[in-house]
Design a protein around this nucleic acid. Structure first.
Lengths: 154, 154
DNA sequence: TAAAACAAGTTTCATATGTAACTAGTTTGA
DNA sequence: TCAAACTAGTTACATATGAAACTTGTTTTA
């Protein structure tokens, strides 16, 4: 009967809000560890993670695979090069792009962070059984296909 | 046999990464709508969402309920006051704090954003059945209790 | 084959954000 | 009752970020 009454949104039950708070908490929690240990930011780590998996990609490839824009990749890469964790190799065929690699030192850091990151994920899913983890991933996939129709998020 | 070989992390399968990419995509997607329509940032909207639900809270309360630090709340509030979407009311008993309210105009904006936000959530979960939505929330709760032991995230 | 269109990556600039320091007001306790 | 400790909220400063413009190199096409 009262058209002027607003229908409140319960923020704490709102799925996008929960995802955001949870995701930020998790990201910060992991980042704290490798920042403290190696002085590496989340974006720097993402670039390293991609290069640890796919050595020799160029910046544009990294941009796609790490879901980072090219400016962020450029900045992360140049700082990682200064830190001697990544090196750049000119491509013969195309003078604009260059292939990127972890240095030996970078690979060493990578090898230390990977188990740390994997361990955190294991903790996170530790209270779930395998089916539930599977289900969680599926449900997140379902959200992703709505949130970014067409384009794949990962 | 080869101890020097690194064990790569598959970033695209890594739960924290997926959560982060998904959450950022969703947040940006919703924010685009109310930013375009009302010039309101995500943090400004969060403050408004809290005040739409709990009129008269002070900045510290909002800080807790919106999972934002007090500086962010302070900034969001002062800009919302300039935009005449929020008003501040001094408290009689404590000269430091003040109670905050949506203005009439703020309530109008709130009433337009709420269905937009709710609609987005409905789309997001549209492909799931009720049990699955329930399960998703439960699994996110499980993650939250690991990611932030003790403290409640929402 | 030269101009136009395009692509990779960087730089610039304006704004957003986090941390720490600060101001003003309140509570505690000797 | 008054100094010390504490709390609410703001400001200052250093850094992070995003968008747009730019530089350099490549491809297209007339």
């Amino acid at each position: 009967m009262d058209e002027t009454m607003s229908v409140p949104l319960k923020l704490s039950d709102y799925l996008p809000y929960r995802l955001s708070v949870l995701s930020n908490t998790i990201s910060r929690s992991i980042a704290e560890r490798y920042e403290a240990a190696f002085g590496i930011s989340m974006r720097q780590w993402r670039v390293m993670a991609i290069l640890g998996e796919f050595a020799g990609l160029n910046a544009t490839d990294i941009s796609e695979r790490a879901a980072m824009d090219k400016v962020a990749v450029s900045r992360a890469v140049s700082s990682l090069i200064e830190m001697k964790l990544v090196r750049r190799e000119a491509t013969q065929d195309d003078g604009r792009r260059s292939r990127l690699f972890l240095t030996e030192r970078g690979a060493g850091v990578y090898d230390e962070i990977v188990p740390m990151a994997a361990g955190y994920e294991a903790e996170l899913t530790g209270a779930m059984d395998a089916d539930e983890v599977q289900k969680l991933l599926e449900l997140l996939d379902a959200c992703a296909s709505i949130a970014a129709p067409g384009r794949k998020l990962w």
